[in-house]
């Protein structure tokens, strides 16, 4: 067991590599030599082009996949040790891209109860947790609804509630907004930010660059490697590198860059429309 846990660290990856066996092309290294630590309460966004290994990495953080080489610890528990798996999965809950393929039960409340039921929580306590979780994601009015009649954003919030009801330390979301409309995306992002304020560590994978600006830290994956890591301002400063990887910066950041090139003085940290407006009106 890893011993040198500092009190605030929650996830640590060291030299993590992972290899898929593929039927046609043989083996494929989806992750190569990745090392990082994530502290309790942080909001991390992971960016990367299609096929860069984001989902593969996410599945390592709650022991759904085990490293081919290197190690991953969650709350000081080594994921390679099978005895730790259930505790790790309770600590690090995961929400997936397609809301349809992660809702198990035929009503909202039954689905949210699924996790706590698996953990063997007593009935009365499950009830309390389900109500609390649905309240937190703003779906308390939909307890008896059938999931297939909800909108995408609502389904995704139900999925989040299902994880919250397990009382995790850490929430891992793999492109939760990819299939949603703007309102659904806002609903989900606001929910995630609220949970982060309550002290839950959030690791969010996304293709929407605008969603990265609220992060404490952004990690960029490219071809299975950790290509960049830093605050949103630091990462988005490197717009050309991002574009070379198939990514982009939010339009405002690109605009701010263009304005600087034309000689306008702007603070280096401009990431949002509001920030640019207040800079320009100074």
């Amino acid at each position: 067991m890893y011993r040198g846990v500092s009190p605030i660290e929650i996830i640590r990856a060291k030299g993590l590599g992972f290899k898929y066996q593929q039927a046609d092309t043989g083996e494929c290294w989806a992750l190569r030599d990745i090392s990082f630590t994530i502290n309790k309460g942080e909001f991390i966004v992971i960016l990367g082009p299609n096929g860069s290994g984001k989902s593969t990495l996410a599945k390592h953080l709650n022991a759904l996949l085990l490293p081919t080489c290197g190690e991953v610890w969650v709350n000081g528990l080594l994921t390679s040790d099978e005895a730790n798996h259930w505790q790790i999965r309770q600590l690090a809950g995961m929400v997936f891209q397609n809301p349809d393929n992660q809702i198990v039960a035929t009503t909202v409340e039954e689905d949210v109860a699924f996790g706590p039921e698996n953990l063997g929580v007593p009935s009365a306590e499950i009830r309390a947790r389900v109500d609390e979780a649905l309240e937190l994601v703003g779906m308390a009015g939909y307890k008896k609804h059938a999931p297939h009649l909800l909108s995408g954003g609502q389904k995704q919030r139900v999925a989040i509630a299902g994880v919250i009801a397990m009382r995790p330390e850490c929430l891992i979301l793999d492109e939760p907004t990819a299939m949603l409309d703007p309102r659904g995306r806002i609903e989900v992002m606001e929910t995630v930010q609220r949970l982060n304020k309550e002290g839950i560590t959030v690791i969010l994978i996304t293709h929407f660059m605008e969603e990265a600006v609220i992060a404490d830290r952004v990690m960029v994956l490219a071809d299975g490697r950790l290509a960049m890591s830093g605050t949103p301002a630091e990462v988005f400063m490197r717009g050309d590198e991002l574009r070379a990887l198939g990514l982009d910066t939010p339009p405002v950041v690109r605009l701010a860059q263009e304005l600087r090139l034309a000689g306008v003085e702007l603070a280096p940290s401009v990431l949002t429309v509001e920030e640019l407006v207040s800079e320009l009106c100074r």
């Binding site: 999965r89 409340e109 109860a113 699924f114 996790g115 706590p116 953990l119 063997g120 009935s123 397990m166």
Partner: peptide, 13 residues
């Protein structure tokens, strides 16, 4: 990922 491992030790809402 949500700790499902069959009926053993499961409770119900």
């Amino acid at each position: 990922a949500r700790c499902y491992r069959g009926g053993m030790g499961r409770t119900r809402l």
